[in-house]
């Protein structure tokens, strides 16, 4: 069952749902708009001939880190997301979900209609998650799109589970950061 705006507000106020910082967050009727952080990891916008990647390879993340560039959006800098481009970013907000809540990060319709998506078939946020949300941002439209830190980039849907997830993270995982 999705949480409504009032339920989201209550969950945040009671500490059941962690959302930090709250500045810039906007609660929608059944979701929460979150904002884009300062850093982007930028993939090559051109096909890279001669390289194929086995996604199951354990070293694939090191490969990605070595083959993307980091862009800083602080101090009002703008990144132009060209048509066909793909970057990885994250939310400013850190989200913490207890074992009886799960989340789904989705795009905003304003951006979708310009051709911009914020995840690639991986929207699920598991119960017990406690971190900033990583976004896979791409542009399928014909225009370059300006990305700025602090812009409302995605919306988070929160769902209450029928019963809590098993084998959750108590003890050492509490009080992260």
């Amino acid at each position: 069952m999705l949480l409504s705006d009032g339920e989201i507000q209550e969950a945040v106020d009671s500490g059941e749902l962690i959302l930090e910082p709250r500045l810039g967050v906007r609660i929608q009727p059944s979701s929460i708009d979150l904002t884009l952080g300062n850093t982007l990891h930028v993939h090559s916008s051109q096909p890279v001939p001669g390289i194929s990647i086995d996604p199951e390879l354990l070293q694939v993340r090191q490969f990605i880190s070595a083959n993307t560039t980091e862009e800083d959006l602080s101090d009002g800098r703008v990144w132009k997301l060209e048509p066909g481009a793909f970057v990885i970013g994250e939310t400013v907000e850190r989200v913490g979900l207890p074992l009886h809540l799960a989340g789904r990060v989705e795009g905003r319709s304003r951006l979708a209609r310009l051709g911009v998506g914020v995840h690639i078939t991986a929207p699920k946020i598991d119960p017990g998650f406690h971190n900033n949300i990583t976004l896979e941002i791409f542009n399928l439209g014909p225009w370059a799109i300006e990305l700025r830190a602090g812009m409302r980039i995605c919306t988070l849907i929160v769902e209450r589970l029928g019963r809590s997830a098993q084998a959750g993270y108590g003890g050492v995982f509490q009080g992260a950061r």
Binding site: R61, Q62, S65, H130, N131, T134
Partner: peptide, 23 residues
């Protein structure tokens, strides 16, 4: 990688990996 860390380790000749939050 942002606020996560990828752990890649070798144990007894086997390799294991996990992406965990940095906290």
């Amino acid at each position: 990688f942002f606020h996560d860390v990828h752990i890649l380790m070798e144990v007894g000749g086997n390799h294991y990996d996990a992406l965990v939050p940095d906290w």
